[in-house]
Nucleic acid binder design. Structure first.
Lengths: 209, 209
DNA sequence: GAATAATGTTGACGCTGCCTACATTCGCGA
DNA sequence: TCGCGAATGTAGGCAGCGTCAACATTATTC
Protein backbone atom coordinates (compact mmCIF):
# COMPACT_ATOMS: atom_id res chain seq x y z
CA UNK A 1 0.00 0.00 0.00
CA UNK A 2 2.74 2.40 0.96
CA UNK A 3 6.27 2.72 -0.32
CA UNK A 4 7.00 -0.55 -2.05
CA UNK A 5 10.66 -0.06 -2.50
CA UNK A 6 11.86 -0.47 1.03
CA UNK A 7 14.18 -3.30 1.83
CA UNK A 8 12.23 -4.80 4.68
CA UNK A 9 8.71 -5.91 4.11
CA UNK A 10 7.50 -5.20 7.60
CA UNK A 11 4.97 -8.00 8.02
CA UNK A 12 6.16 -10.69 5.69
CA UNK A 13 5.24 -13.55 7.94
CA UNK A 14 1.60 -12.61 8.14
CA UNK A 15 1.50 -11.73 4.44
CA UNK A 16 2.87 -15.15 3.58
CA UNK A 17 0.38 -16.90 5.82
CA UNK A 18 -2.51 -15.02 4.25
CA UNK A 19 -1.23 -15.70 0.76
CA UNK A 20 -0.82 -19.35 1.61
CA UNK A 21 -4.41 -19.62 2.78
CA UNK A 22 -5.57 -17.93 -0.41
CA UNK A 23 -3.44 -20.16 -2.58
CA UNK A 24 -4.77 -23.18 -0.75
CA UNK A 25 -8.36 -22.22 -1.45
CA UNK A 26 -7.63 -21.40 -5.07
CA UNK A 27 -5.20 -24.04 -6.26
CA UNK A 28 -5.16 -26.60 -3.50
CA UNK A 29 -2.17 -27.98 -1.66
CA UNK A 30 -0.67 -29.16 -4.93
CA UNK A 31 -0.45 -25.69 -6.36
CA UNK A 32 1.03 -24.05 -3.28
CA UNK A 33 4.71 -23.18 -3.71
CA UNK A 34 6.95 -21.08 -1.52
CA UNK A 35 8.37 -19.34 -4.54
CA UNK A 36 4.94 -18.23 -5.73
CA UNK A 37 4.02 -17.04 -2.26
CA UNK A 38 7.24 -15.05 -2.11
CA UNK A 39 6.59 -13.49 -5.48
CA UNK A 40 3.03 -12.60 -4.61
CA UNK A 41 4.40 -10.87 -1.52
CA UNK A 42 6.84 -8.96 -3.72
CA UNK A 43 9.84 -10.53 -2.14
CA UNK A 44 12.70 -12.77 -3.23
CA UNK A 45 12.35 -16.52 -3.35
CA UNK A 46 14.40 -17.22 -0.24
CA UNK A 47 12.92 -14.52 1.97
CA UNK A 48 10.30 -16.90 3.40
CA UNK A 49 13.09 -18.94 4.95
CA UNK A 50 13.71 -16.09 7.42
CA UNK A 51 10.27 -16.81 8.90
CA UNK A 52 9.78 -20.51 8.32
CA UNK A 53 12.36 -23.23 8.58
CA UNK A 54 10.94 -24.90 5.51
CA UNK A 55 7.73 -25.36 3.60
CA UNK A 56 6.47 -27.90 6.07
CA UNK A 57 6.70 -25.46 8.93
CA UNK A 58 4.61 -22.93 7.04
CA UNK A 59 1.98 -25.58 6.36
CA UNK A 60 1.98 -26.67 9.97
CA UNK A 61 1.21 -23.13 11.02
CA UNK A 62 -1.56 -22.87 8.46
CA UNK A 63 -2.99 -26.13 9.74
CA UNK A 64 -2.79 -24.88 13.32
CA UNK A 65 -4.73 -21.78 12.38
CA UNK A 66 -7.21 -24.02 10.61
CA UNK A 67 -7.83 -25.98 13.79
CA UNK A 68 -8.27 -22.67 15.57
CA UNK A 69 -10.88 -21.57 13.05
CA UNK A 70 -12.65 -24.90 13.35
CA UNK A 71 -12.64 -24.60 17.12
CA UNK A 72 -14.12 -21.11 16.90
CA UNK A 73 -16.85 -22.39 14.66
CA UNK A 74 -17.70 -25.19 17.01
CA UNK A 75 -17.65 -22.81 19.94
CA UNK A 76 -20.26 -20.62 18.30
CA UNK A 77 -22.38 -23.59 17.32
CA UNK A 78 -21.94 -25.22 20.69
CA UNK A 79 -24.45 -25.97 23.42
CA UNK A 80 -26.71 -23.05 24.17
CA UNK A 81 -25.46 -22.66 27.73
CA UNK A 82 -21.94 -22.12 26.48
CA UNK A 83 -22.96 -19.23 24.27
CA UNK A 84 -23.32 -15.70 25.61
CA UNK A 85 -26.81 -14.77 26.73
CA UNK A 86 -27.81 -18.36 27.13
CA UNK A 87 -29.42 -18.04 30.54
CA UNK A 88 -32.67 -17.07 28.89
CA UNK A 89 -33.02 -20.34 27.04
CA UNK A 90 -31.84 -22.19 30.10
CA UNK A 91 -34.66 -20.58 32.04
CA UNK A 92 -37.11 -21.55 29.37
CA UNK A 93 -36.10 -25.02 30.39
CA UNK A 94 -36.56 -27.90 28.02
CA UNK A 95 -33.33 -29.70 28.89
CA UNK A 96 -33.87 -33.25 27.74
CA UNK A 97 -36.22 -32.65 24.86
CA UNK A 98 -33.71 -32.45 22.02
CA UNK A 99 -30.68 -33.85 23.76
CA UNK A 100 -29.04 -34.95 20.56
CA UNK A 101 -29.74 -31.64 18.87
CA UNK A 102 -26.67 -29.94 20.23
CA UNK A 103 -24.47 -32.72 18.95
CA UNK A 104 -26.17 -32.49 15.60
CA UNK A 105 -25.58 -28.73 15.46
CA UNK A 106 -21.88 -29.27 16.06
CA UNK A 107 -21.87 -32.03 13.48
CA UNK A 108 -23.36 -29.60 11.03
CA UNK A 109 -21.00 -26.75 11.87
CA UNK A 110 -18.01 -29.06 11.55
CA UNK A 111 -19.01 -30.15 8.09
CA UNK A 112 -19.93 -26.65 6.99
CA UNK A 113 -16.41 -25.58 7.86
CA UNK A 114 -14.86 -28.48 6.00
CA UNK A 115 -16.93 -27.77 2.90
CA UNK A 116 -16.19 -24.06 2.95
CA UNK A 117 -12.44 -24.61 3.14
CA UNK A 118 -11.85 -28.06 1.72
CA UNK A 119 -8.18 -27.60 0.95
CA UNK A 120 -7.48 -26.26 4.41
CA UNK A 121 -9.40 -29.10 6.00
CA UNK A 122 -7.47 -31.64 3.97
CA UNK A 123 -4.22 -29.99 4.94
CA UNK A 124 -5.19 -30.20 8.60
CA UNK A 125 -5.57 -33.95 8.25
CA UNK A 126 -2.92 -34.44 5.64
CA UNK A 127 -0.50 -37.36 5.34
CA UNK A 128 2.28 -35.42 6.99
CA UNK A 129 0.55 -35.66 10.32
CA UNK A 130 0.86 -32.01 11.11
CA UNK A 131 -1.23 -32.03 14.21
CA UNK A 132 1.30 -34.14 16.00
CA UNK A 133 4.36 -31.99 15.47
CA UNK A 134 3.06 -28.62 16.55
CA UNK A 135 2.00 -27.58 20.00
CA UNK A 136 -0.31 -24.93 18.57
CA UNK A 137 -1.86 -27.52 16.29
CA UNK A 138 -2.38 -29.89 19.16
CA UNK A 139 -3.91 -27.31 21.45
CA UNK A 140 -6.30 -25.97 18.84
CA UNK A 141 -7.40 -29.40 17.72
CA UNK A 142 -7.95 -30.40 21.33
CA UNK A 143 -10.03 -27.31 21.85
CA UNK A 144 -12.13 -28.12 18.80
CA UNK A 145 -12.65 -31.70 19.89
CA UNK A 146 -13.35 -30.49 23.41
CA UNK A 147 -16.50 -28.75 22.24
CA UNK A 148 -17.62 -31.89 20.51
CA UNK A 149 -16.92 -34.12 23.48
CA UNK A 150 -18.57 -31.84 25.97
CA UNK A 151 -21.65 -31.61 23.80
CA UNK A 152 -21.74 -35.39 23.69
CA UNK A 153 -21.37 -35.59 27.45
CA UNK A 154 -24.17 -33.11 28.03
CA UNK A 155 -26.41 -34.87 25.57
CA UNK A 156 -25.81 -38.10 27.42
CA UNK A 157 -26.61 -36.46 30.70
CA UNK A 158 -29.88 -35.42 29.11
CA UNK A 159 -30.67 -38.96 28.13
CA UNK A 160 -29.18 -39.35 24.68
CA UNK A 161 -27.36 -42.69 24.36
CA UNK A 162 -26.63 -42.46 28.04
CA UNK A 163 -25.49 -46.05 28.29
CA UNK A 164 -22.22 -45.51 26.45
CA UNK A 165 -18.90 -44.33 27.67
CA UNK A 166 -18.57 -40.68 26.76
CA UNK A 167 -15.01 -41.01 25.56
CA UNK A 168 -15.85 -43.85 23.23
CA UNK A 169 -19.00 -42.20 21.98
CA UNK A 170 -17.21 -38.92 21.41
CA UNK A 171 -14.47 -40.54 19.37
CA UNK A 172 -17.06 -42.42 17.34
CA UNK A 173 -18.89 -39.20 16.62
CA UNK A 174 -15.64 -37.56 15.62
CA UNK A 175 -14.73 -40.44 13.30
CA UNK A 176 -18.18 -40.27 11.78
CA UNK A 177 -18.17 -36.53 11.19
CA UNK A 178 -14.62 -36.68 9.85
CA UNK A 179 -15.63 -39.47 7.51
CA UNK A 180 -18.62 -37.54 6.21
CA UNK A 181 -16.47 -34.44 5.80
CA UNK A 182 -13.83 -36.16 3.71
CA UNK A 183 -16.32 -38.06 1.59
CA UNK A 184 -18.26 -34.87 0.89
CA UNK A 185 -15.13 -32.87 0.17
CA UNK A 186 -13.69 -35.41 -2.20
CA UNK A 187 -16.99 -35.81 -3.97
CA UNK A 188 -17.07 -39.52 -3.39
CA UNK A 189 -20.75 -39.73 -2.65
CA UNK A 190 -23.40 -40.50 -5.24
CA UNK A 191 -24.84 -37.48 -7.00
CA UNK A 192 -28.14 -37.70 -5.15
CA UNK A 193 -26.38 -36.66 -2.00
CA UNK A 194 -23.18 -34.91 -2.90
CA UNK A 195 -24.75 -31.62 -3.86
CA UNK A 196 -24.09 -28.47 -1.97
CA UNK A 197 -27.25 -28.88 0.02
CA UNK A 198 -27.84 -30.64 3.29
CA UNK A 199 -29.15 -33.93 1.99
CA UNK A 200 -26.32 -35.69 3.75
CA UNK A 201 -27.78 -34.79 7.11
CA UNK A 202 -30.80 -36.97 6.69
CA UNK A 203 -28.49 -39.85 5.90
CA UNK A 204 -26.08 -39.21 8.71
CA UNK A 205 -28.95 -39.27 11.15
CA UNK A 206 -29.66 -42.85 10.26
CA UNK A 207 -26.72 -43.82 12.39
CA UNK A 208 -26.64 -40.98 14.88
CA UNK A 209 -30.19 -40.78 16.04
CA UNK B 1 16.11 -62.23 -14.33
CA UNK B 2 17.22 -63.08 -17.83
CA UNK B 3 19.31 -61.09 -20.25
CA UNK B 4 19.25 -57.55 -18.93
CA UNK B 5 20.70 -55.86 -21.96
CA UNK B 6 17.89 -56.15 -24.37
CA UNK B 7 16.28 -53.02 -25.64
CA UNK B 8 12.71 -53.87 -24.73
CA UNK B 9 11.86 -54.58 -21.17
CA UNK B 10 9.06 -56.98 -21.94
CA UNK B 11 6.72 -56.25 -19.04
CA UNK B 12 7.53 -52.74 -18.05
CA UNK B 13 4.01 -51.74 -17.25
CA UNK B 14 3.52 -54.42 -14.64
CA UNK B 15 7.01 -53.87 -13.27
CA UNK B 16 6.28 -50.20 -12.82
CA UNK B 17 2.98 -50.89 -11.12
CA UNK B 18 4.63 -53.29 -8.68
CA UNK B 19 7.45 -50.89 -8.00
CA UNK B 20 4.96 -48.11 -7.44
CA UNK B 21 3.09 -50.15 -4.85
CA UNK B 22 6.35 -50.96 -3.10
CA UNK B 23 7.47 -47.36 -3.15
CA UNK B 24 4.11 -46.31 -1.79
CA UNK B 25 4.41 -48.64 1.18
CA UNK B 26 7.99 -47.68 1.85
CA UNK B 27 8.17 -43.93 1.26
CA UNK B 28 4.57 -42.87 0.93
CA UNK B 29 3.00 -40.90 -1.87
CA UNK B 30 5.44 -38.06 -1.28
CA UNK B 31 8.46 -40.21 -2.06
CA UNK B 32 7.07 -41.77 -5.20
CA UNK B 33 8.63 -40.41 -8.37
CA UNK B 34 8.38 -41.65 -11.91
CA UNK B 35 12.11 -41.26 -12.37
CA UNK B 36 12.89 -43.48 -9.42
CA UNK B 37 10.41 -46.07 -10.58
CA UNK B 38 12.01 -46.04 -14.01
CA UNK B 39 15.47 -46.42 -12.56
CA UNK B 40 14.40 -49.27 -10.29
CA UNK B 41 13.02 -50.98 -13.38
CA UNK B 42 16.37 -50.49 -15.12
CA UNK B 43 14.93 -48.25 -17.75
CA UNK B 44 15.32 -44.65 -18.84
CA UNK B 45 13.42 -41.86 -17.16
CA UNK B 46 10.92 -41.34 -19.94
CA UNK B 47 10.16 -44.96 -20.68
CA UNK B 48 7.16 -44.96 -18.32
CA UNK B 49 5.45 -42.48 -20.63
CA UNK B 50 5.00 -45.25 -23.17
CA UNK B 51 2.66 -46.97 -20.70
CA UNK B 52 1.10 -44.12 -18.74
CA UNK B 53 0.05 -40.75 -20.06
CA UNK B 54 1.44 -39.11 -16.96
CA UNK B 55 2.10 -39.71 -13.29
CA UNK B 56 -1.52 -39.24 -12.42
CA UNK B 57 -2.59 -42.03 -14.73
CA UNK B 58 -0.18 -44.41 -13.04
CA UNK B 59 -1.55 -43.47 -9.64
CA UNK B 60 -5.12 -43.86 -10.80
CA UNK B 61 -4.34 -47.40 -11.86
CA UNK B 62 -2.68 -48.13 -8.52
CA UNK B 63 -5.73 -46.74 -6.76
CA UNK B 64 -8.02 -48.86 -8.89
CA UNK B 65 -6.09 -51.97 -7.94
CA UNK B 66 -6.31 -50.85 -4.34
CA UNK B 67 -10.08 -50.73 -4.51
CA UNK B 68 -9.97 -54.18 -6.05
CA UNK B 69 -7.90 -55.48 -3.17
CA UNK B 70 -10.24 -53.87 -0.68
CA UNK B 71 -13.23 -55.42 -2.41
CA UNK B 72 -11.59 -58.84 -2.28
CA UNK B 73 -10.97 -58.41 1.42
CA UNK B 74 -14.55 -57.46 2.09
CA UNK B 75 -15.77 -60.34 -0.04
CA UNK B 76 -13.87 -62.81 2.11
CA UNK B 77 -15.01 -61.19 5.33
CA UNK B 78 -18.57 -60.85 4.09
CA UNK B 79 -21.79 -62.44 5.34
CA UNK B 80 -21.44 -66.10 6.11
CA UNK B 81 -23.93 -67.15 3.40
CA UNK B 82 -21.77 -65.47 0.80
CA UNK B 83 -18.74 -67.52 1.76
CA UNK B 84 -18.18 -71.07 0.53
CA UNK B 85 -19.41 -73.78 2.90
CA UNK B 86 -21.76 -71.48 4.68
CA UNK B 87 -24.83 -73.72 4.51
CA UNK B 88 -23.74 -75.41 7.71
CA UNK B 89 -24.00 -72.29 9.78
CA UNK B 90 -27.16 -71.37 7.99
CA UNK B 91 -28.65 -74.72 9.01
CA UNK B 92 -27.55 -74.13 12.58
CA UNK B 93 -29.96 -71.24 12.29
CA UNK B 94 -29.53 -68.30 14.58
CA UNK B 95 -30.35 -65.68 12.03
CA UNK B 96 -31.20 -62.62 14.08
CA UNK B 97 -29.00 -63.25 17.07
CA UNK B 98 -25.94 -61.33 15.96
CA UNK B 99 -27.44 -59.41 13.11
CA UNK B 100 -24.94 -56.62 13.40
CA UNK B 101 -22.01 -59.02 13.61
CA UNK B 102 -21.64 -59.31 9.86
CA UNK B 103 -21.45 -55.56 9.51
CA UNK B 104 -18.93 -55.45 12.30
CA UNK B 105 -16.81 -58.06 10.57
CA UNK B 106 -16.74 -56.01 7.40
CA UNK B 107 -15.99 -52.92 9.44
CA UNK B 108 -13.03 -54.74 10.90
CA UNK B 109 -11.77 -56.10 7.60
CA UNK B 110 -12.02 -52.67 6.03
CA UNK B 111 -9.89 -51.10 8.72
CA UNK B 112 -7.42 -53.95 8.75
CA UNK B 113 -6.83 -53.32 5.07
CA UNK B 114 -6.41 -49.60 5.57
CA UNK B 115 -3.91 -50.12 8.37
CA UNK B 116 -1.92 -52.70 6.46
CA UNK B 117 -1.54 -50.43 3.45
CA UNK B 118 -1.97 -46.93 4.76
CA UNK B 119 -0.28 -45.15 1.87
CA UNK B 120 -2.33 -47.07 -0.67
CA UNK B 121 -5.52 -46.36 1.23
CA UNK B 122 -4.70 -42.67 1.37
CA UNK B 123 -3.96 -42.65 -2.33
CA UNK B 124 -7.32 -44.28 -3.02
CA UNK B 125 -9.03 -41.37 -1.26
CA UNK B 126 -6.53 -38.74 -2.18
CA UNK B 127 -7.21 -35.12 -3.06
CA UNK B 128 -7.00 -35.80 -6.75
CA UNK B 129 -10.29 -37.62 -6.69
CA UNK B 130 -9.02 -40.63 -8.51
CA UNK B 131 -12.05 -42.77 -8.11
CA UNK B 132 -14.07 -40.44 -10.25
CA UNK B 133 -11.86 -40.40 -13.29
CA UNK B 134 -11.35 -44.08 -13.85
CA UNK B 135 -13.92 -46.65 -14.81
CA UNK B 136 -11.88 -49.40 -13.18
CA UNK B 137 -11.66 -47.35 -10.02
CA UNK B 138 -15.36 -46.74 -9.98
CA UNK B 139 -16.29 -50.35 -10.59
CA UNK B 140 -13.96 -51.71 -7.94
CA UNK B 141 -15.01 -49.20 -5.36
CA UNK B 142 -18.64 -49.90 -6.10
CA UNK B 143 -17.98 -53.59 -5.65
CA UNK B 144 -16.31 -52.96 -2.31
CA UNK B 145 -19.13 -50.75 -1.11
CA UNK B 146 -21.62 -53.28 -2.45
CA UNK B 147 -20.46 -55.84 0.08
CA UNK B 148 -20.86 -53.32 2.85
CA UNK B 149 -24.30 -52.23 1.76
CA UNK B 150 -25.61 -55.74 1.28
CA UNK B 151 -24.35 -56.70 4.72
CA UNK B 152 -26.17 -53.72 6.13
CA UNK B 153 -29.33 -54.69 4.29
CA UNK B 154 -29.20 -58.24 5.54
CA UNK B 155 -28.51 -57.14 9.07
CA UNK B 156 -31.54 -54.90 8.87
CA UNK B 157 -33.64 -57.76 7.59
CA UNK B 158 -32.48 -59.66 10.66
CA UNK B 159 -33.66 -56.92 12.94
CA UNK B 160 -30.66 -54.65 13.29
CA UNK B 161 -31.66 -50.99 13.05
CA UNK B 162 -34.45 -52.07 10.79
CA UNK B 163 -36.21 -48.72 10.98
CA UNK B 164 -33.69 -46.89 8.85
CA UNK B 165 -33.40 -46.56 5.14
CA UNK B 166 -30.72 -48.98 3.99
CA UNK B 167 -29.11 -46.51 1.64
CA UNK B 168 -28.77 -43.89 4.34
CA UNK B 169 -27.58 -46.36 6.93
CA UNK B 170 -25.05 -47.85 4.54
CA UNK B 171 -23.58 -44.49 3.69
CA UNK B 172 -23.39 -43.61 7.35
CA UNK B 173 -21.57 -46.82 8.09
CA UNK B 174 -19.18 -46.14 5.24
CA UNK B 175 -18.52 -42.61 6.48
CA UNK B 176 -17.91 -43.96 9.93
CA UNK B 177 -15.54 -46.71 8.89
CA UNK B 178 -13.71 -44.34 6.56
CA UNK B 179 -13.38 -41.81 9.36
CA UNK B 180 -11.99 -44.41 11.74
CA UNK B 181 -9.60 -45.64 9.08
CA UNK B 182 -8.14 -42.24 8.34
CA UNK B 183 -7.87 -41.25 11.99
CA UNK B 184 -6.12 -44.51 12.81
CA UNK B 185 -3.82 -44.27 9.81
CA UNK B 186 -2.80 -40.71 10.51
CA UNK B 187 -2.26 -41.45 14.18
CA UNK B 188 -4.62 -38.75 15.26
CA UNK B 189 -6.15 -40.69 18.10
CA UNK B 190 -4.94 -40.52 21.68
CA UNK B 191 -2.27 -43.01 22.57
CA UNK B 192 -4.63 -45.12 24.62
CA UNK B 193 -6.37 -46.19 21.48
CA UNK B 194 -4.04 -45.66 18.58
CA UNK B 195 -1.92 -48.73 19.17
CA UNK B 196 -1.80 -51.55 16.71
CA UNK B 197 -4.36 -53.49 18.65
CA UNK B 198 -8.11 -53.53 18.33
CA UNK B 199 -8.98 -51.12 21.11
CA UNK B 200 -10.69 -48.92 18.61
CA UNK B 201 -13.37 -51.54 18.07
CA UNK B 202 -14.78 -51.17 21.55
CA UNK B 203 -15.04 -47.45 20.95
CA UNK B 204 -16.53 -47.73 17.50
CA UNK B 205 -19.24 -49.98 18.85
CA UNK B 206 -20.46 -47.17 21.08
CA UNK B 207 -22.09 -45.68 18.02
CA UNK B 208 -22.74 -48.74 15.94
CA UNK B 209 -24.39 -51.09 18.34
C1' DG C 1 11.55 -58.31 -46.69
C1' DA C 2 9.81 -53.77 -46.19
C1' DA C 3 6.54 -50.67 -43.98
C1' DT C 4 4.62 -49.57 -39.65
C1' DA C 5 3.62 -49.61 -34.93
C1' DA C 6 5.34 -50.29 -30.35
C1' DT C 7 8.68 -49.40 -27.17
C1' DG C 8 12.93 -47.24 -25.18
C1' DT C 9 16.69 -43.34 -25.09
C1' DT C 10 18.72 -38.69 -25.05
C1' DG C 11 18.62 -34.05 -24.10
C1' DA C 12 16.39 -30.27 -22.66
C1' DC C 13 12.98 -26.98 -20.27
C1' DG C 14 10.78 -24.99 -16.42
C1' DC C 15 9.44 -25.62 -11.97
C1' DT C 16 10.34 -26.77 -7.21
C1' DG C 17 12.62 -26.73 -2.21
C1' DC C 18 16.50 -25.29 -0.16
C1' DC C 19 21.58 -24.26 0.65
C1' DT C 20 25.53 -20.71 0.98
C1' DA C 21 27.27 -16.27 0.74
C1' DC C 22 26.31 -11.63 0.79
C1' DA C 23 23.52 -7.01 1.47
C1' DT C 24 20.64 -3.97 3.98
C1' DT C 25 18.31 -2.27 7.83
C1' DC C 26 16.68 -2.20 12.68
C1' DG C 27 17.30 -1.69 17.52
C1' DC C 28 19.84 -1.43 21.50
C1' DG C 29 23.69 -0.19 24.63
C1' DA C 30 27.73 2.93 25.17
C1' DT D 1 24.77 9.86 18.52
C1' DC D 2 27.43 6.24 17.18
C1' DG D 3 28.34 1.64 16.25
C1' DC D 4 27.71 -3.10 16.55
C1' DG D 5 25.08 -7.33 16.43
C1' DA D 6 20.76 -9.31 15.21
C1' DA D 7 17.09 -9.50 12.15
C1' DT D 8 15.64 -9.54 7.66
C1' DG D 9 16.02 -9.69 2.56
C1' DT D 10 18.81 -10.87 -1.94
C1' DA D 11 21.60 -13.42 -5.52
C1' DG D 12 23.17 -17.48 -7.34
C1' DG D 13 23.33 -22.11 -7.55
C1' DC D 14 22.24 -27.23 -6.90
C1' DA D 15 19.65 -31.39 -7.30
C1' DG D 16 15.28 -33.50 -8.07
C1' DC D 17 11.01 -33.50 -10.33
C1' DG D 18 7.37 -34.07 -14.40
C1' DT D 19 7.17 -33.75 -19.06
C1' DC D 20 8.08 -32.71 -24.01
C1' DA D 21 10.37 -33.34 -28.67
C1' DA D 22 13.42 -35.82 -31.49
C1' DC D 23 15.55 -39.90 -32.35
C1' DA D 24 16.84 -45.18 -31.96
C1' DT D 25 15.66 -49.90 -31.70
C1' DT D 26 12.77 -53.78 -31.89
C1' DA D 27 8.31 -56.27 -32.84
C1' DT D 28 4.51 -57.00 -36.02
C1' DT D 29 2.11 -57.32 -40.01
C1' DC D 30 1.16 -57.33 -45.05
Amino acid sequence: MEAKDRYHHGSLRKTLMDAALDSLEKDGLQGLSLRKLAESAGVSKTAPYRHFKDKKELLINIAADGFGMLADRLAVAGPADAAPGAEATAEAGHPAVDAGADVMRLFRAYIDFARERPALYKLMFSPLGYSLHSEKCRLNSERALGYLFSAVGKAQAAGWRSGRETRALGLSIWASVHGWATLLIDNLLPEWIAGNGDEWIAHAQALLI
